[in-house]
Computed example of a mutant assay.
Amino acid sequence: MGFSMSVLVFSMLVFTPLCYSEYLNPQFYARSCPKAQEIVRSVVANAVARETRMAASLLRLHFHDCFVKGCDASLLLDSSGTIISEKGSLPNNNSARGFEVIDAIKSALEKECPQTVSCADILAIAARDSTVLAGGPYWNVPLGRRDSTGASLSGSNNNIPAPINTLPTIITKFKLVGLNTVDLVTLSGSHTIGFSRCTSFRQRLYNQTGNGQPDPTLDQSYAAQLRSGCPRSGGDNNLFPLDRVTPAKFDNHYFKNIVGAKGLLNSDEILFTKSQTTMELVKTYAENNNLFIDQFAKSMIKMGNISPLTGSRGEIRKNCRRINT
């Protein structure tokens, strides 16, 4: 790597500002529901205490919501007469989870301040609190989102970055929602916690290039370990930690794993093998946990600003699973 690339990567990180939306404000509920964030934090903390994995699941819900029509809680809607739920999409079916925790938060908030706090804001706050509970950064969540009155199954199938996507495709999906390459690499770091199903990476173990051979960019001893629990057929839902070293701790081991050819998903490893720019960012984060942690908070705020419904658009749902009648 040349000196100019080092300077470029460092400047991309140092000068990425905190981007608060002009429509959203961390103090949005200060008067209308002053205990809102305290209530969310309490329910999330209890859920994560019961099951550590829930932190990653709640963080993921916010991602999968924001990449489809913006951060509007469309993901939370169940199918009804007029709505086909996003929960049945390829990225979410048998995979997205934590909906009952969101229900519990909403129920507690409706008792405290009826029809005041949106489900979209609940997702944003729960994602932050989950990150903090796993040892990651705290950030002031801009608030004031409203909830959509519809869902988009096609958007969920097509817009959410997938483990098998090429790097140019993933970059394009991020760019379409206003996120850049720094955001892409940084937010991929959320894979420092949580698990993935065998079906999401099986092709790397058996037939990555169509010749029946394992992915050459995957450490072969690690691949052998994975094959023992992820057979050629069956076991689709067997779970594996996305970060094999510290699966429950929010840190930069995810990036260290990638540098060592031990990133679990293809979409993880290609950050190191398919682009000089993303490779240098991965190396930077692998060497500097504080830089990763700091930028993660900034990129999460930016992601939470994707096309929010504000003002009179949308509604404040009484039940996150269905629109008001």
Score class of each variant (00 low, 15 high):
Val141Met: 06
Phe99Trp: 06
Ile171Lys: 07
Gly136Arg: 11
Thr209Lys: 13
Ser89Met: 08
Ile84Pro: 00
Ile122Val: 15
Gly98Tyr: 12
Ser188Tyr: 14
Pro91Lys: 01
Gln115Thr: 12
Leu179Thr: 02
Val177Glu: 02
Asn211Cys: 01
Ala134Lys: 06
Leu153Met: 08
Asp129Gln: 09
Thr169Asn: 09
Leu187Cys: 06
Ala134Asn: 10
Gln208Arg: 08
Asn159Met: 08
Ser152Cys: 01
Glu112Phe: 05
Gly88Phe: 10
Gly150Cys: 13
Asn140Thr: 10
Pro137Val: 09
Leu205Tyr: 06
Asp103Lys: 13
Leu143Gly: 05
Asn140His: 12
Ser200Leu: 03
Gly98Glu: 07
Thr192Ala: 13
Glu110Ser: 11
Asn165His: 14
His191Asn: 14
Ser154Phe: 12
Gly88Ile: 11
Ile83Trp: 03
Leu109Met: 13
Leu176Asp: 12
Thr82Val: 06
Ala162His: 09
Phe99Tyr: 15
Val101Tyr: 05
Ser89Trp: 00
Asn159Tyr: 06
Lys87Trp: 00
Ala127Cys: 15
Leu90Lys: 13
Ser130Ile: 05
Ala134Val: 12
Ala134Thr: 12
Ile171Val: 13
Cys198Asn: 05
Ser190Met: 05
Pro168Ile: 09
Gly155Asp: 14
Asp129Pro: 08
Arg197Asn: 04
Ser156Thr: 10
Asn180His: 07
Asp121Thr: 00
Leu109Ile: 11
Ala120His: 02
Asn140Pro: 07
Ile164Asn: 14
Cys198Gly: 02
Arg202Cys: 04
Val141Asp: 04
Gly88Glu: 08
Ile84Ser: 10
Pro142Asp: 14
Gly210Ser: 08
Asn158Lys: 06
Glu112Tyr: 06
Tyr138Phe: 15
Thr116Asn: 08
Thr172Lys: 15
Tyr138Glu: 15
Gln208Ile: 03
Glu100Lys: 08
Thr131Val: 15
Asn211Met: 12
Cys198Tyr: 00
Pro114His: 14
Arg204Tyr: 08
Ala124Val: 04
Asn211Phe: 12
Ala151Thr: 01
Tyr138Ile: 10
Thr209Gly: 07
Ser85Glu: 04
Arg97Ile: 04
Asp103Gln: 13
Arg97Phe: 13
Lys175Cys: 00
Pro161Gly: 04
Thr172Cys: 09
Asn180Gly: 13
Leu167Asn: 05
Asn207Thr: 06
Asp121Leu: 05
